[in-house]
């Protein structure tokens, strides 16, 4: 559960309404609507879920149930520099887990969390299609290849 309370701006509410309308406010399309909302906001805070609930006339408890069931959905905002470590087979066998552990240690974060200053968030993903560079780390749009645990500190330093 997120500890961050946000207030939606009018234009945010309009955006959610627009997304819901583009699916004819059909409750059957809830998952697709949530995908679009997460695409737009980067995460699904309670306030967004409440607007979706009003638009679709679906209890907000149900929406929260869906959001917490599917691991793709998150109620935690991504950091300004989202870090993703590939845990696909190739990266994994070449030591991605040790790299991930190093990020966790350096940032004092668990996977799925964001630093309190909102700078970094940590996630793991499956295969970015750059297996030749394994293990691969993404920070925002930038790709780092053949990352070793010792490189982690230097990568983070680039964003200071």
């Amino acid at each position: 559960m997120s500890s961050i309370k946000i207030e939606l701006r009018q234009e945010d509410i309009e955006k959610i309404r627009e997304i819901c309308s583009s699916f004819n406010k059909d409750p059957q399309e809830l998952i697709n609507i949530l995908h679009k909302c997460q695409e737009h906001f980067g995460y699904l805070p309670a306030e967004v879920q409440e607007v979706v609930s009003n638009e679709l006339d679906v209890p907000v408890a149900k929406i929260y149930g869906v959001v917490t069931f599917y691991s793709f959905f998150t109620m935690t905002p991504k950091g300004r520099h989202p870090i993703s470590i590939c845990m696909g087979t190739a990266c994994y066998v070449r030591g991605a887990e040790k790299v991930l552990d190093e990020f966790k240690k350096e940032l004092n974060l668990q996977v799925g969390q964001t630093t309190t200053d909102g700078k970094f968030s940590l996630s793991s993903l499956r295969c970015v299609g750059a297996c030749g560079l394994a293990p691969v780390v993404l920070v925002g749009d930038k790709t780092y290849g053949r990352v070793a645990p010792d490189d982690v500190r230097n990568i983070l330093r680039e964003y200071e």
Binding site: M1, A46, Q49, V58, P59, V60, A61, K62, I63, Y64, G65, T68, F69
Partner: peptide
């Protein structure tokens, strides 16, 4: 609509929103 199944696996529960 006060209660819904939330979370999954070990932490699954029936609870109000959030």
């Amino acid at each position: 609509g006060a209660l819904s199944a939330v979370n999954r696996g070990f932490m699954a529960a029936v609870a109000p929103a959030f």
